[in-house]
């Protein structure tokens, strides 16, 4: 198939950036979106031009590295599918495809379609862990966990940290990401001890990074490649409010 590509090119974080148009031919319908971009890069190199920079790694939908807004939808038109698992058969021959990076101030463009997602790491560093020093664990079956609880934690833990939620949110809010992390750990008995501390710290870091607030519109859930639900945000709201109330009476440390 033949495609017209309109792709965001930006030399550096300070560069203003602009769209460039490319015509690409002989794209196989069976190739993935990223393989199509590989082909474009090969074409650019053959012309002696600089190849396109975009993040990608595992190409099997789990590492969370790929991050493209395709025709106005993060990760493109297919539900619960990362960019790397999106295949060209979902596009029409001769179609014009617009490719942009995630757009949010806390996730600035480094180059072309590559953005800096380090705020996510910092949110985790501030509290997204269950302290369990290596070697200090009790037997794994010492604390039985109801299947339903484990399943809920797993639903939340499925988050791959790609940032599509922020990209899709009209407020550039990172609530779905933070909520998934918080829900995963707060739901488990192991995470109970640090629950309030974790929730307060992670939300404070999230806000401090400059993400917008949640307005419950649900675009994040719609584009999430792992189907993380808004239920997680409800839980985060509840856990955060309860932690703040406790904090009011006796500081949580």
């Amino acid at each position: 198939m033949k495609l017209n590509l309109r792709i965001w090119r930006q030399k550096s974080p300070l560069d203003k950036g602009r769209f460039e148009e490319y015509a690409l031919d002989n794209v196989s319908e069976d190739s993935s979106f990223l393989e199509m971009l590989d082909l474009l890069c090969e074409q650019l190199v053959a012309e002696g031009k600089e190849a396109l920079a975009f993040d990608h790694d595992c190409r099997e939908g789990i590492c969370g590295m790929c991050a493209l807004t395709i025709n106005g939808i993060p990760h493109g038109p297919e539900k619960q599918t990362t960019t790397c698992q999106l295949h060209m058969r979902h596009f029409k021959d001769g179609e014009t495809i617009t490719v942009e990076p995630w757009r949010a101030k806390p996730l600035p463009v480094i180059k072309d379609l590559v953005v800096d997602r380090s705020p996510f790491d910092r949110i985790i560093q501030s509290g997204g862990f269950i302290s369990a020093r290596t070697g200090s664990a009790v037997d794994a079956n010492a604390v039985p966990i109801p299947k339903q609880t484990a399943d809920t934690a797993m639903d939340a833990a499925a988050c791959i940290g790609c940032g599509a939620c922020v990209a899709a949110c009209p407020n550039a809010s990172a609530m779905l990401f933070t909520a998934a992390k918080v829900s995963h750990m707060n739901n488990l008995p192991q995470g109970e001890v640090e629950k309030d501390r974790r929730t307060l710290a992670m939300v404070t870091t999230m806000d401090g990074e400059g993400f917008g607030g949640c307005t419950n519109v649900g675009e994040c859930e719609a584009v999430c490649p792992k189907g993380i639900s808004l239920d997680m945000i409800a839980q985060l709201n509840r856990d955060y409010t309860s932690a703040q109330v406790k904090n009011f009476f006796e500081p949580v440390s």
Partner: peptide, 28 residues
């Protein structure tokens, strides 16, 4: 909150499509 949202996305998308947000939610 609106101001915070504006600050969080100073540069918008050239193409933006809504997937599931309702009209009511988007026009609050």
């Amino acid at each position: 909150l609106t101001l915070a949202s504006r600050r969080a996305r100073p540069a918008g998308y050239a193409v933006k499509r809504v997937v599931q947000a309702t009209y009511a939610a988007r026009t609050m």
